[in-house]
Amino acid sequence: MSGIDKTIHEPARLRILTLLASVDVMDFSFLLMTLGLTKGNLSSHMDRLEKVGYIAVEKTFNGKVPHTQYKLTSDGRGALETYWRELDSIRQMVMPEVDASPVNNQADASDATS
């Protein structure tokens, strides 16, 4: 699994990146409410993703209330795309006879990374 990006492979971060890849912008409150993580935990994940350049952070104020929103960067989008490709190649090696999509009639994951 040397090709797998360990930053993305962590379950919470994979969900965060998938969420960010599916829309244009998302803020901290939405991620917190959607994922049900603790504030500290989510902050740590977001810091980590920002440090590797996968997400862009924009901090503003709504009156006196700080507002932090996130976007997936082109690096992050590329890394996520590569991650899915790597996983798919592993799956093909292990189970070549299995159809690539377990839920064929749902939105294709590649939508989010295109």
């Binding site: 969900r15 599916s22 959607t34 989010a112």
Partner: peptide, 15 residues
């Protein structure tokens, strides 16, 4: 279950 952990479902429902 695979349906609930499928990332495509996350994409679908967030949109």
């Amino acid at each position: 279950g695979i349906e609930l952990t499928d990332p495509r479902q996350i994409i679908r429902w967030s949109r």
